[in-house]
Design a protein around this nucleic acid. Structure first.
Lengths: 341, 341
DNA sequence: CTGTTAGCGCATTCAC
DNA sequence: GTGAATGCGCTAACAG
């Protein structure tokens, strides 16, 4: 039987109320008494019961805001599923989640959403942040107002509770490693990326470039195509680009809209057979893997990312638990045909 | 504010006790009343509060037994860490974990451990089962006695709550796919495996063979070395085997004791440069990756496996939640140099 | 068959 | 500064 505040109260010869006040550093306790209580708690190895704490927490409803300000692709759907899963788990603690979606990469619009949620009284916010000074300032402002912020999916430079998501720089390195492994030492690579307004996409590209330079100096990065997050638009842009890069033998696709790009690849006549490396595991990618077009895909576990952001915010806001690290990285893994079929 | 049994009691014009009895299908409730209560609960979308449930559960201490009957390698250490992590999370519910370790692959010894734990009054058991009829029978017996059993790491054919672990057959397929990807269509593969008393190891080998047959018919599986789970012994056995397989160009190491085998590889003069594919991410593997000996490693997330088994048992025994599936598969992923460095 | 109540461990409020 | 009491939602034991 684990030790409770009641037992500590007995041992210290005080009431549970005093123990509670002492252990949680609340005001209104004699310094000496508080010290003695803490010592006793320490010596008996007291650990507060999170379940009971949770039951109590239920009394004040907590609202967590979510802002996903990017087109809704497979990745985002999975992310949302993860958020929902976490929500289900913590609903019993009286936590409510309020989500806002937006398309495009407009900082003003993102800021408007933040303000909306603040008006609705959120206590915490999970956001895929645009890399814009105004957004940074706004998030700093929230922090000052006591609203806890967690970044997800893409990290930017702002002081907040934590960033939860993949290490995208490493993701880029892994892609680079795969390119080297599959394409050989002197292959020619074309890199397709989602818009670089999302800083994570920039970092990923950096990772790739660094690996190529460090470990595969003979690989030639023919070009970088920044594609719109829309299947048709991406298709058109990619089709044009690939004509220019006909001597490519490795194509990397890190956009959310793989479908259009994959079509463009299949319709382009390359000089040799191309290896294709993609990001995540949407249906189009699976199908392309099935028919041998895609050799490997680098997965970022969006479901887990969504689940973890909410859990992190919940643990802090409701349970008072500070995350172990400011960077909560989700693994970046590699899947091949046999991983799925 | 979510709906509680109290509110349902009000709506139905009965007491909370009756609602509790009705919703949990306990005896001693009028059929009609029970039906009405269930209807009301349904219509208002009642979801029991797991936190409150947990607090109550704390009154009767629950014991979960753990049997790890295999040498303690890095994989097992991680598995244990996962079990401990889960334990920490559920200690607040009054759950205690009692672990037993054994070396070797002796079914009698494993059965003895099971009996010991049963004598100590466990309510549930997580076990890495040996594939032996007597073990199967013993586990069936536990089930009949009302002790919930979950298998971990290696699946065998016995009716229990669930198997939690990787799909090892798929793991074998992934290894096969990697071998094909790295070694080329006509490479020569040597496969080193941990003892085949653990059925999972057999399944993994099956997966590899099937993939080679289906997708890489020209790859030649030179030989299968069943190595002991002891670094020195494995080293000696492997060194002898590799002399015979000097024309190999791909070596797969799926033993827990990679260290000995990796040394043996480095000391053997192969006819060409060999690609090495390993299992999991122990220190020796990392180091070998760093110096370019190992190209890829297939990871099985032992930490997660351990965490998940305990959570699954807990959810069933304490919270009454039946797992969604009898097979709870943990992802099998691929890591390369850039995944780590 | 049904209602009432105590209590799981903690936080909070109100007395003192 | 401190103690006592109440309640979070649920289960179990006891009363009726």
């Amino acid at each position: 039987m684990a030790v409770t505040i009641k037992k500590i109260a007995e041992l210290a010869g005080v009431s549970v109320g005093t123990v509670d006040r002492a252990l949680n550093n609340r005001k209104g306790v004699n310094q000496e008494v508080a010290g003695r209580i803490k010592e006793i708690a320490d010596s008996v190895g007291y650990v507060p019961n999170t379940v009971a704490k949770g039951l109590v927490a239920r009394r004040k409803e907590v609202k967590i805001g979510v802002i996903i300000h990017t087109p809704k692709h497979a990745f985002i759907e999975e992310l949302l599923a993860g958020i929902q899963a976490a929500n289900k788990k913590i609903a019993d603690y009286g936590v409510e989640i309020m989500a806002r979606y937006g398309e495009g990469y407009d900082a003003d619009s993102q800021i408007r959403m933040i303000d909306e949620l603040v008006d609705e009284g959120i206590h915490a916010l999970a956001i895929i942040p645009l890399n814009d000074k105004r957004v940074v300032d706004k998030l700093e402002e929230l922090r000052k107002r006591g609203i806890t912020v967690a970044l997800m999916v893409s990290d930017i430079d702002v002081d907040c509770l934590a960033y939860v998501g993949c290490d995208l720089y490493r993701g880029g390195r892994i892609i680079g490693g795969l390119a080297g492994m599959l394409g050989g030492r002197d292959s020619k690579v074309v890199y397709c990326t989602a818009p670089l307004e999302i800083l994570g996409n920039v970092r990923r590209l950096d990772g790739l470039k660094d690996v190529l330079q460090e470990r595969y100096p003979d690989i030639h990065l023919l070009g970088v195509c920044e594609l719109q997050n829309d299947d048709l638009a991406a298709y058109r842009q990619a089709a044009i680009a690939f004509k220019e890069y006909r001597d490519a033998d490795t194509i990397v696709v890190t956009t959310g809209c793989t479908k259009g790009v994959l079509s463009a690849i299949e319709e382009t006549v390359f000089e040799k057979k191309v290896n294709v490396i993609t990001l995540d595991l949407a249906k189009p990618v699976e199908q392309a893997m099935a028919r041998g077009l895609v050799q490997a895909t680098v997965v970022q576990h969006p479901f887990l990312q969504g689940k973890k952001v909410i859990e992190t915010l919940f643990n802090y806001v409701v349970m008072g638990k500070v995350p172990d690290s400011k960077k909560i990285y989700i693994d970046t893994d590699i899947k091949i045909y046999e991983s799925i079929f």
